[in-house]
């Protein structure tokens, strides 16, 4: 287990380094950063000055290393638009987005895993068809459109839930549903397929031959094995969701990272965008690592060599 964890950790670090390089290169994506900073009316001398002050004249590898060193210590740069430290802005918004993400993934799992299990227990019945329909609709609906439907019915027609803001937990319900619903089909289909496969396996027959109650057979023996691939998928989907939260946060005017990203793109505020990409990527890497650990816990064939 320890060796396995160490290996996974090594991979995570390598991915993080790669991501940081890509993120760093974002700065040069829009051309010469010194020219962008100096503005349109700057003279050649001004640009040269800025280049020297900001260190753009150094070799690119040195620039990367000093940037990465800063990022490691929480210095993510300075936003010229907001006139403030980027890290402070990003970490102020992060909890909101994480709350939304956690709520969305919880909603998705609570809906999709029981549905997947039910569909596998009664394949080709009404339950199965219902689950399939839900999955197809979920995959076909763009999340922004689904969000608008939710706002129209739950928010405006029936006045059940607040439409914008982050004042109370109620504000998170609609965005969480809109964001989580998109994840539901994949997780449900994988749960169903996994359960169908496991339920027809020899060790389930053994469990039944031992006279175990159907609940024990289903949850202790079947689900434990069927859920293993779902863990990995959920981690990946959570990553997609953090990206998807840009749209959802914008629609519901939630002051999270996604909304900040949307604003920064409009303002061409490169340092902020760079920081957001880096933070989201790191969260994604951490989640993938945790999913690997959870899988090792669930599957002794990974854990015990």
């Amino acid at each position: 287990m320890f060796v396995y964890a160490l290996k996974r950790l090594g991979v995570a670090v390598l991915v993080a380094i790669t991501v940081s390089m890509v993120t760093f290169s974002l700065l040069y994506l829009s051309g010469d950063p010194a020219m962008a900073l100096a503005g349109e009316s700057a003279t050649q001398q001004d640009i040269e000055n800025i280049r020297r002050v900001y260190g753009f004249d150094r070799p690119i590898i040195l620039q990367y290393l000093s940037w990465a060193w800063g990022a490691l210590h929480g210095h993510l740069g300075y936003s010229n638009y907001l006139r403030t430290d980027v890290a402070a802005v990003v970490f102020e918004r992060l909890p909101t987005t994480m709350t939304l993400g956690a709520a969305a993934i919880s909603f998705a799992l609570i809906l999709s895993i029981p549905l997947g299990v039910l569909a596998a227990m009664r394949p080709n019945t009404v339950v199965d068809r219902f689950a399939l329909t839900l999955a197809v609709v979920g995959q076909a609906l763009p999340s922004f459109w689904f969000a608008l439907i939710l706002i129209f019915w739950l928010g405006i027609e029936w006045r059940l839930l607040p439409i914008t803001g982050t004042e109370s937990w109620k504000n998170f319900i609609m965005p969480a549903i809109a964001l989580g619903y998109y994840v539901t089909p994949g997780v449900m289909r994988l749960t169903r397929a996994g359960m169908l496969e496991v339920l027809s396996s020899d060790y389930i027959r053994t469990a039944r031959a031992k006279g175990l109650r159907s609940g024990t057979v289903l949850f202790k023996h079947a689900l434990r094995n069927a859920i293993i691939p779902v863990v990995a998928l959920t981690a990946v989907q959570f990553g997609f969701m953090l990206g998807g939260s840009i749209v959802i946060e914008t629609i519901f005017a939630i002051n999270g990272l996604g909304y900040l990203a949307w604003e920064s793109i409009q303002r061409a505020d490169m340092p902020v965008m760079q920081a957001i990409v880096l933070v989201l990527a790191c969260i994604y890497i951490v989640l993938t690592f945790l999913a690997d650990m959870l899988n090792a816990f669930l599957d002794p064939r990974i854990r015990v060599a």
Binding site: Y203, A209, G211, H221
Partner: peptide, 21 residues
């Protein structure tokens, strides 16, 4: 009755035990 008064041994020992326990 199953497992208590009558029990069964299967053909496939490689796959008849649950890998997770």
């Amino acid at each position: 009755i199953r497992g208590s008064k009558m029990a069964m041994i299967f053909q496939e020992p490689m796959t008849s035990l649950n890998p997770a326990y």
